[in-house]
Write a protein that binds this DNA or RNA. Structure first.
Lengths: 358, 358
DNA sequence: GCCGGAACAGCAACGGGTTGCCATGTATTG
DNA sequence: CAATACATGGCAACCCGTTGCTGTTCCGGC
């Protein structure tokens, strides 16, 4: 004899509610998923019974027929990089606002891991945000064929993208250094495979042309403090008075490395970073850096993804570009050594000259 | 007439594979979920057909009957706090290793948001790791009744917990300061509601007794750089020579605030933080701090959760305690002013005295 | 040559909702 | 008052696997 009393540890289903409210399961289902198809009094009664029984619609069961899970995947290259905190929060908050849940995937800078994790998760999510993906364009396009995908911090043809205005950021940094009298900027490169690294260098080349500032590149180095310290070593052999680093971590490594070598920042060398992470404000001297709107990035990418999930086409044409700004702190200063020769011969001078903020 | 040819954009199902391999759907299912129940040749054939058709088992459909999604939720209090990066990675990596997917929930320091998000996600995950939850003990216990739950950085009765050895960390910090000649330690408190805050203060009380060091508390302050700066203000009215801050952020705020006020760190005041975040190494002077094994925390909590999901009982008795260590940098130094009076009258002295690392 | 049991594969009933279609009852309209 | 339209709610199929049970085949043992 089947026992129809539900064991108390199990969640109530529409069938339990239906029995209790004396309607059919379909009515219960509709009372929640499309209330307009149900008499409002009936719907109310159903809702009350459901409340009393602690009923919650099972998202998995729903997903089985609707193929909508209300989950999205957010794939980031490296969660230990503080840059992603803002992106994650922006994405998470935007998703949560529309009652979507975010699945976070940390690719740990590995193409292989990234792929495997997406492969495994793809069928469970309604869409994917790829933040700084390390995968090939073609791999990304392949995923984009199966699910809505938005790419962050990178431009991939035929896939909707959200990027920050790297050219403008670089340009502002170059202008700033130019105004301080620097006529030569060294770019300390990050990972060759990184899309922002490429565009930042190209933007610097271009800005150099227009502003009549000479530019060169050293690297690539690892985009970490250690990478920056190694870059400092290399800089010893080929001195500079103005440096633009791929990111803040490297800029901080540079400050450290140079300071240890007895080079004064910004007295002897001005340094500009990229990202405006928390650390930029903590390091001494405070790092002049190009601020990216991380929260807005995550938020914009997610919002766009959600509209695609709802059926919008997705502007695969031009990437969406978010504005950046230059935050001037104390790692940049007026160029002191007008002459070319031996720019790093120490001339004692104690404190950091004050610099105006923008 | 029903059309049995599958539209090419849809994923293949076990039915497609079954038809193609000329077996029943159940055989296909078993070929993947319990191969020992199927003739190995048959299984091989099925697998080949599946491969050819690009079949992947649909995790949602599977979950519907097995009620196992192979997803776990990781709830953190505030993703912008760098402390969680290590925890998230530890959890993520451990989960991924066992082919579990991690759903990240950023509670944004809000009890309400945290609850709502868990409520919504609970039915889709097999278990939950609560890192620094802001919810009440009873709320946590309620969730723990419905799903396996492991609590991180907090002790909740009747729920498995993973914590770091706060007493030992505080003790080491106190010993260190004592050895430097400090006979009085001021604890700069973080959020009242924070569990670690409570235990750190109590541990300091205890350590003070044993080491014959006087202790007092000021605060609470917000656990941020700004909070630390505000604490610095308050410290002006009630000077100290040795300070233990609730966390690194506050310690950095203290360094900043005090330095700005003309107080020399560590010359006039020694400061110890908690967490050993990246910033501790970046700030000047480098921050002496109690290092917590974040990665291990996330990893241990997740591993424990997974064993619970697999059916193990869960050691709800004593919390699992992870070891900490003191990282000595340059924010602590030998106490200079032996006298009580006006400990902060400036006595010029330029650089940070070197301090030995432990 | 017969019997018991192991190995294998299929049937069918789930799991918990969703939804196209139909039946019923009521309201509207001419 | 008949005819039509609309509002409601139920039936049953479906989404895609999983699994208890059953039926068949084949094997070894006596």
């Amino acid at each position: 004899m089947p026992d129809h009393t539900r064991p108390p540890d199990k969640r109530a289903t529409i069938y339990d509610v239906a029995a209790e409210a004396d309607v059919s399961p379909s009515t219960v289902s509709r009372a929640f998923s499309r209330p307009s198809r149900v008499n409002s009094e009936t719907a109310e009664r159903v809702r009350q019974v459901a409340e009393r029984l602690g009923y919650r619609t099972n998202p998995l069961a729903r997903a089985l027929t609707t193929s909508r899970t209300r989950m999205i995947a957010l794939v980031i290259a490296d969660i230990t990089n503080p840059v992603y905190a803002g992106i994650v929060r922006g994405a998470q908050e935007t998703a949560m606002h529309d009652e979507y849940t975010t699945v976070l995937i940390d690719a740990q800078e590995s193409d292989r891991l990234e792929r495997a994790a997406i492969e495994r998760t793809m069928s469970t999510v309604d869409g994917i945000v790829l933040a700084s993906s390390r995968m090939s364009d073609s791999a990304i396009r392949m995923f984009a064929k199966q699910r809505p995908v938005v790419v962050l911090n990178r431009a991939v043809a035929d896939v909707p993208c959200v990027v920050t205005d790297n050219p403008r950021g670089v340009r502002r940094a170059a202008e700033h250094l130019g105004e301080l009298g620097h006529d030569h900027i060294t770019y300390v490169a990050g990972p060759q495979a990184s899309w922002p690294n490429g565009i930042r260098w190209r933007s610097l080349l271009e800005a150099g042309m227009e502003l009549e500032i000479k530019v060169r590149q050293i690297g690539p180095f690892s985009p970490t403090i250690e990478g920056g310290e190694r870059a400092a070593e290399e800089l010893r052999a080929r001195p500079a008075t103005a440096v633009l680093a791929f990111n803040d971590q490297m800029a901080i490594g540079l400050i450290r490395g140079l300071t240890r070598m007895g080079v004064d920042v910004p007295g002897d060398v001005s340094i500009v970073g990229f990202d405006n992470t928390l650390a930029a404000d903590i390091v001494t001297p405070g790092l002049t850096t190009v601020a990216a709107p991380f929260y807005a990035e995550g938020s914009a990418a997610t919002r766009h993804l959600l509209t695609m999930i709802e059926g919008a086409p997705g502007h695969a044409g031009r990437p969406m570009v978010l504005p950046v700004r230059l935050v001037v702190r104390h790692s940049t200063a007026v160029r002191r050594n007008a002459g070319r020769a031996r720019p790093w011969v120490r001339q004692r001078q104690s404190a950091n000259p004050a610099t105006q903020l923008s």
